[in-house]
Nucleic acid binder design. Structure first.
Length: 300
DNA sequence: TCACGTCAAGCAGAT
DNA sequence: ATCTGCTTGACGTGA
């Protein structure tokens, strides 16, 4: 098991998800921003390695407007060497990488234009992983999408669109259970498409068919093949006195310890979706060490 | 320098 | 029909 956190680090004093307004778009501005974001990503990965945090979700804001029609600049080629260098570091330190396109990606949209834009956004994400030179153990996690008043039809549309995607992109894609499509829905899709299922613990608490945590682990861990590497899990606890689904501000130590104990028979990589980011990740690693978690990977 | 309105993108539930 | 959460900060204009 590796333990990690998503997208931004609050300690290192640089931001790897800098962006700017569409109105102020220029190639110069784009280059400056990507340059900043890549430098910061490298710094962040070095920080993580030192803290034994070996799972990381790269922000979708790494290259602003990458899938927007305004972007005509070949940033892939321009930053080829920088990506390669970061990729070498990732592989050398055996860091696990994921990405998570945000809420505008809907593969199963009824609107062709939204589907087309979503596809472009997904290709941007796979471009990043390719430039880093990462294999199919690096994952892009997406939701199944909208329900559009007919879940059955919407699942079928998702499946047929997914099957037509290019192999390279498909190799990186995994689906995540959420409020609209729960674990069983995702497993059903997996049976047809072979797409691994990333388990989100908080969404599962909010939307399930009564499976216990151990049963859930039995189900989703089996959807990951050797080429996919270890299953990924998004973990969060509920923020008290907040609406359902809100992520906790900091790690709830008891809840987390309990979660680790319940999932003890399984090996997986754990993403902590907690607001205070690396601080909770460091605490989580400490707890995993205390309970002498077998399979805990802390680096070379 | 600072405050604050706004930011590429979609869906779904609430009002 | 419009607003809000998801997810949240920070860009950038106007004073």
């Amino acid at each position: 098991m590796r333990i990690g956190y998503p997208c931004v680090n609050l300690s290192i004093g640089c931001k790897g998800d800098r962006s700017f307004r569409l109105k102020s778009y220029s190639t110069k501005r784009l280059i400056e921003t990507i340059n900043n974001n890549l430098k910061c990503l490298q710094k962040l990965l070095e920080f993580n390695t030192k803290e034994h945090i070996l799972f990381f979700r790269i922000t979708s804001d790494l290259v602003p407007f990458a899938s927007h029609p305004i972007c005509k600049f070949n940033w892939q080629n321009h930053f080829k060497n920088d990506f390669e260098e970061i990729g070498r570091y990732i592989k050398k330190r055996k860091i696990r990488i994921s990405m998570h396109p945000d809420q505008f990606v809907f593969i199963n949209s009824l609107n062709q234009e939204i589907f087309r834009r979503s596809l472009k956004e997904l290709l941007y994400h796979s471009d990043i992983l390719d430039l880093l030179g990462l294999d199919t153990s690096a994952k892009i996690q997406i939701h199944v999408g909208g329900v559009y008043g007919d879940k059955h039809k919407s699942i079928n549309r998702f499946v047929s669109r997914l099957q037509k995607l290019e192999e390279n992109l498909k190799g990186h894609l995994v689906i995540e259970n959420d409020i609209r499509y729960n674990l069983k829905d995702c497993i059903q899709i997996h049976k047809i498409t072979d797409t691994p299922v990333l388990f989100d613990s908080l969404h599962h608490e909010l939307n399930n068919y009564g499976e216990k945590l151990s049963e859930a682990f039995e189900l989703f861990t089996r959807t990951w093949k050797k080429k996919d590497s270890l299953p990924m899990v998004d973990y969060s606890s509920q923020q008290k006195l907040q609406n359902n689904g809100k992520h906790a501000k900091t790690l709830n130590l008891e809840h987390f310890k309990n979660f680790l104990q319940l999932s003890l028979p399984f090996d997986y990589d754990l993403m902590l979706e907690i607001k205070d980011k690396e601080r909770s990740a460091i605490k989580a690693i400490e707890i995993a060490r205390q309970i002498k978690l077998k399979n805990l990977f802390l680096g070379l």
